[in-house]
Write a protein that binds this DNA or RNA. Structure first.
Lengths: 345, 345
DNA sequence: TTGTAAGCGTTATCAG
DNA sequence: CTGATAACGCTTACAA
């Protein structure tokens, strides 16, 4: 519990010199430097960061607001954020909101009360169900959507979804079921837009009976798929707005004796690590999770440090990964099997 | 940026009264209370927690040291920790070490410099490869092993592993391959002990050729399995020390035309969410991830607050989950198929 | 290059 | 119950 004073006394210099030796070494003589370091060693001094942060009115911490840390896509983004933060000397406060506005508010308060210098959001902001972020708070959205306001990093969810459905249609599918996220989830909304756009473009009428509402969990994918199994005129393909629901859906299909992809194709979204190891492996849209986290962190740091933002919205490219869960529609006659699909911008 | 002074002036009371109104409301008259709250509202006051923490020499934060946040088992534990921390008014600093002692040290420093009040470790401590935690730091291990020193929460890794291998043997398996974690990983060591114990108990000689060293990733499981496929006298079952390696291994086996479980049984460890959705679904040992995080957090809080610990080591029960990835050994004659297996203590 | 001393926003200690 | 005031450990003008 020794303080800077003890070091100063031991070294025979002033506290100012000790302070400077620690934070502006170039302004201290070599001799003083040595004395200080010896003294630090001797008294076992550790600077009190609480005091330093207080004095400099900065916490060197940011909070990450995430709907669910156990979601593998989010944990990838967070890992990248943490990595970057550590490099820059910032700490990451974990803010798992579990979808509740109350918990979210707690974390917003943490930055209002100076416990954090900024806020990184991993879920698109929907004013209806979430708190509005006070305007004086430095914040960046790392997983934005089309209508995200304020600085954000995102992918083209709509375009990426359209790419997937275009592909399904090119395989001869005409009845394509969709497993959406919750109705007011901005990611689900954007992706469903792409789904509808693709259908419209190919002259396929949109059928509301063909969309099931999930909540991005495997469990909900499992349940949603039942709805499609027992239809009189069941779809030949399922477009899921994320990988876990697709994995759950495949499970159900198999249990009902429906072969994937021979009888029904299934696509995911995110390309989580498990997508490659399911049976069959999952055709899906890969998001640059690491890059998203890293870029968002860099943007937030700029805002915090008062540097100008070169661009306020950053749309990153996705990659369409074709694996084994998709095949030509049963009985479809294809002019030629598509070899290549342009990735979403 | 208004301070407690502004509130005091506005309310016509002293700063001491404002401070008390906020942290010891029972010691303030109702009248003063009202004046203060009106003033707070009016000037838009938010207490500066940096100052409060500095003054009270507490950060109300803990750091969680985790080898890899993207590991689904760890993210479950962390979610529970965060939940508990939030309830108790503590923040969680994410410390993803990526296995490097340097990053680990950075986080240990954070608690030495008062930026956190305590340390929760999610990996067993092995003195050889990790920093030693200074004795004056409040710390609890949430995923301990047999030889973890200091307060810890853990499961009986050895016993649980033995339960699995006992089961395999009861199915008639005699040549049982093992995919271990890295040699010096304490979890891997404990679990491999259980493996060997079970073999010994059943009079099956231990064969070093039958153990592959993985690193707990799916990728390493995938590679390890190849080693078993191409053996002259290949095993009829694989005991993997975690689920991801088991999932990777199954992938390899299938690709090599080896049916699971008909030709070869595979077992995992952890029971991550995906274990239920692989094909075939995975027989594995379920760890009480949430409970482990919650208990460890409670213990750490007690240490921080100076309360006595009722017990310093807490061993939680596991549950053996038999799914579809295990079956009787090919050609084995079983006296009677085992119906029930006693779970590890 | 170094030292002196004035804060930073709170809480805690004393008197009143 | 309330108010004045001294810390808390550090940074940073300003002076030397």
């Amino acid at each position: 519990m020794s303080s800077i004073r003890d070091v100063a006394r031991e070294a025979g210099v002033s506290v100012a010199t000790v302070s400077r030796a620690l934070s502006m070494p170039e302004k201290v003589s070599e001799e003083a430097m040595n004395k200080v370091h010896r003294a630090i060693e001797k008294v076992g001094y550790r600077p009190n960061m609480l005091a330093r942060n207080f004095r400099s009115a900065r916490s060197y911490a940011i909070v990450v607001l995430v709907p669910d840390i156990a979601n593998p896509f989010y944990s990838l983004v967070i890992r990248a954020i943490e990595d970057r933060a550590q490099q820059k000397g910032y700490a990451v406060l974990l803010g798992d909101t579990r979808g509740t506005p109350e918990r979210e508010l707690e974390y917003i308060r943490r930055v209002e009360t100076r416990l954090a210098d900024g806020l990184l959001q991993l879920r698109p902001h929907s004013e209806k169900t979430h708190n509005v972020i006070p305007p004086d708070i430095a914040t960046v959205n790392a997983c934005g959507c089309e209508y995200t306001t304020g600085p954000s990093v995102r992918i083209d969810n709509r375009g990426a979804a359209k790419t997937i459905v275009d592909y399904l249609i090119s395989l001869g599918h005409r009845r394509i079921g969709a497993i959406s996220g919750l109705k007011d989830n901005p990611h689900a909304i954007d992706r469903m837009k792409g789904y509808k756009e693709s259908l419209a473009e190919h002259g396929i009428p949109f059928d509301p009976d063909l969309v099931a509402e999930g909540d991005f969990t495997m469990w909900s994918g499992l349940n949603s798929a039942f709805q499609f199994c027992h239809m009189k005129n069941r779809p030949t393909a399922i477009f899921s707005t994320n990988d876990e629901m697709a994995i759950g859906a495949i499970q159900t299909l198999k249990s009902q004796g429906i072969r994937v992809p021979e009888d029904m194709s299934v696509t995911g979204f995110d390309d989580i690590a498990y997508a490659k190891y399911t049976d069959p492996s999952l055709t899906t849209m890969s998001q640059p999770a690491e890059e998203m986290g890293k870029m968002a962190m860099d943007m937030l740091l700029k805002i915090i440090e008062g540097e100008p933002l070169t661009q306020t919205e950053c749309v990153l490219p996705t990659e369409f990964i074709i694996r084994k869960s998709t095949a030509p529609a049963p009985g479809a006659e294809l002019p030629n099997t598509p070899k290549k699909v342009t990735p979403a911008p």
